[in-house]
Simulated assay, not measured.
Amino acid sequence: MTQTILHIDASARHTGSTTRSLSAKTVAKLSGDVIYRDLTDALPQINETWVNANFTPAGDRTPAQKKALTLSDDLIGEIMAADVLVIGVPVYNFGVPAALKAWIDLIARAGVTFAYTENGPKGLLTGKRAVIVLATGGTEVGSEIDFASGYLRHIMGFIGITDVEIIAADRTMADAEEALAKANAQIDALAA
């Protein structure tokens, strides 16, 4: 059976982007039907209208509230349709790009992608896998100043995706050749 891959690129750069190149190689390695989402196509920030619509029970939403959630519903639909998420993430100023944070805000919805329980939040999008492809200029992935990889692993788990792999091309400004070789070796070792 062919798997469906949701390929997300968060780099502001289209040309010369390490994460775009490595995430494309990852998608090719995993092989499957691909849904592609480029986050540089400016996702909106959530606002009061969106928040009010989100917390209004579905059956009570006005047409304007339903419209406010349309993009969020579409983004969540892409995740639900996927078996694997491949997310290309450059680390900007020690964290994730604002475009990726906007995507996270739009897809983290109580009652849709996670539920509150007596034991805390429970992710609802189980049975999926995520491969996070990170590139950094100077930050070592997993170090105390890496605020991206742990955050993304947590967000994936928060929505129910606990099978998360990190592919890191870190510290590219120190030794790009070594960083890319390490990341390419990780991609080559991925199980389809």
Results as ranks from 00 to 15, higher is better:
M1A: 09
T2A: 13
I5W: 12
L6Y: 11
D9C: 00
A10S: 14
A10T: 07
S11T: 01
A12L: 14
S17Q: 03
T19R: 00
T19L: 08
L22T: 06
L22E: 10
S23E: 10
A24N: 01
A24V: 13
V27E: 09
K29E: 10
K29D: 03
K29I: 04
S31K: 07
G32M: 08
D38P: 02
L39C: 03
L39W: 08
L43Y: 06
I46K: 06
I46H: 12
V51G: 02
V51C: 01
V51E: 04
N54F: 02
N54R: 12
F55N: 14
F55L: 08
F55K: 07
G59S: 13
G59V: 01
R61P: 11
R61H: 09
R61C: 10
Q65N: 03
K67E: 15
K67H: 12
A68L: 10
A68T: 08
T70G: 05
T70F: 02
S72G: 05
D73L: 07
D74R: 13
L75M: 12
I76M: 05
G77Q: 11
E78F: 03
I79A: 13
I79W: 11
A82M: 03
V84A: 09
L85W: 08
L85P: 01
L85Q: 07
V86G: 04
I87M: 13
G88L: 07
G88D: 09
G88R: 05
Y92Q: 14
Y92E: 10
Y92C: 05
N93Q: 08
F94N: 02
A99M: 15
L100T: 01
A102F: 13
W103I: 06
G111M: 11
V112P: 07
A115H: 07
T117Q: 09
T117L: 10
P121Y: 13
P121Q: 07
L124K: 06
G127F: 14
A130D: 05
V133K: 00
L134H: 06
A135V: 13
T136G: 07
T136C: 01
G138N: 04
E140Q: 14
E140G: 09
S143I: 08
A148E: 15
Y151I: 11
F158G: 10
I159K: 01
I159G: 00
G160M: 11
V164A: 07
E165C: 02
I166G: 04
A168K: 03
M173K: 00
A174H: 12
A179F: 13
A181Q: 09
A183R: 02
Q186N: 01
Q186C: 08
